[in-house]
Design a protein around this nucleic acid. Structure first.
Lengths: 256, 256
DNA sequence: TAAAACTGTTGCATATATCGAATGCTGTTC
DNA sequence: GAACAGCATTCGATATATGCAACAGTTTTA
């Protein structure tokens, strides 16, 4: 269950700690030592030491009565510090709010973590649109949906790697790799990507890239809405708005 | 700079990792291996291994060009998971909003982490009140201000421990320990605590405890406002509102 | 009520993560 | 342009964190 990296890490305790944090995050209820050790394939005693160390750092909370462990508020402090140092959420929040309002869509600002995945770092929900719910901190595979086409179009990744990753994706209505490649090419041409019901049936997703520095895009602006509603109001207009906003934010991020 | 625990941990890598995360959080700019090692008193090579492990887990980001490390968005994911599993912020947010609006104060929901410190986990700023700024994830010493009197009043801690901790606090207008003890007694009697300009001159802070389970309070509701403005509208009324809200939330948390 | 099955926890031998010095690299100084 | 100074990184010896087996509670089962 715990992944083994190609070159064995010189600090395995940290990989274990991270796995424990993620497991506790996933779990809806606090877990005991044995349950954690079993789930992650760890030796109970080692697991106990890691848990104690994490509790010492207040990243996890220990309930002496039930002997159960859960995430603690310390992770919040780290997140706040990350947010404080990152201009991207602050920069794009007003942009997201404006586009969400203008077009009646849910807007996301996402950070691109290589070809592996993307993380939502800012969200704006339009009022009239009922919850196409995504929260800050949510993770998605990098190549999925419109954002995926964006990353493929502007990331300059080797074809073979893209194909390999593409096969692992889960869509409501999977496009063929050939169709997808064509859409990626189109994305490169028009500056924004469209996912028309592939990822989630009936839901349209648009995405435009943002660059912190020349090279691969670092972030993306994403619009999500009911497919029919978006198309009625003009898919092009929304796409152009995303591209324009992306350009502005890119300039601000590389300038400042 | 890195604190040495009483009983030496069996997983020191984790303490180092946590120290690194906090250091990177504090820093306004990405740091190199040597800078981190020097600041934390670590051996550079060990520091490097820890950094690589953290980067592998995407808790920190590594810039290959500058060879610098910074917090990564992975910490956001953990924070989101913590928030998802914790009912307290959700429960109190409407309560905070209401009281903030009614009394024109800034409201905080805080989690109590023993006698060591408290962490703000929910915030509501009243519109007309200019920024008495505190953000979610902020940490404060446990015994400071009104919340401190609350913790002392309802926590049943040994007097010596309280006195020891009390001496380390930094106030704008420090009360004497005797005066403080008296205020703690009063807090116990009336159910809420008041800090009238001690912590921050001219600023009044009120706090009422919240219990998840019988024993020591687990959280607190905190009101912050300009002293004169609060006193004009009635300090008692605000205090009673806090106590009532605290009782309601306590019931919901122990019931559900 | 007994005992079985589970839990969290400890002591000890050993594989191994850490340390400190040595290396190669990059940018700076004279 | 050469020597320096600082950096990140590697490498081997050793202190040590880990894995295993045994222990002691606690709840569930017979």
């Amino acid at each position: 269950m715990v992944e083994s990296p190609a070159s064995p890490s010189k600090a395995p305790a940290i990989a274990r700690a991270a796995a424990i944090l993620r497991l506790l995050g996933k779990s809806d209820t606090p877990l005991g030592v044995q349950a954690i050790a079993r789930e992650l394939g760890l030796v109970p005693s080692t697991c106990l030491y890691v848990l104690r160390a994490l509790a010492e750092e207040e990243l996890i909370a220990f309930d002496p009565d039930t002997k159960r462990y859960a995430l603690d508020a310390g992770v919040l402090t780290l997140a706040r510090q990350w947010l404080r140092r990152n201009q991207f959420p602050d920069l794009i929040q007003p942009v997201l709010d404006r586009i969400a309002g203008d077009f009646g869509v849910t807007m996301l600002g996402v950070q691109i973590v290589g070809l592996d995945h993307i993380i939502a770092v800012a969200v704006s929900r339009s009022g009239n649109n009922f919850q196409l719910s995504t929260q800050v901190g949510s993770r998605f595979p990098a190549l999925i949906s419109a954002t995926g086409r964006c990353i493929a179009a502007f990331g300059d990744y080797p074809e073979a790697e893209l194909a390999r990753r593409f096969r692992t994706l889960r869509w409501d209505e999977p496009p063929s790799f050939e169709a997808w490649r064509e859409q990626v090419a189109e994305t490169r041409a028009q500056g924004f990507a469209v996912d028309d019901g592939n990822y989630i049936a009936g839901v349209a997703v648009l995405a435009a890239p943002v660059w912190k520095a020349p090279g691969k895009p670092s972030h993306a602006l994403v619009a999500i809405g009911i497919g029919s509603a978006i198309k009625k109001r003009g898919l092009e207009a929304l796409g152009d708005a995303l591209v324009a906003a992306g350009r502005t934010v890119s300039a601000q991020m590389s300038g400042g």
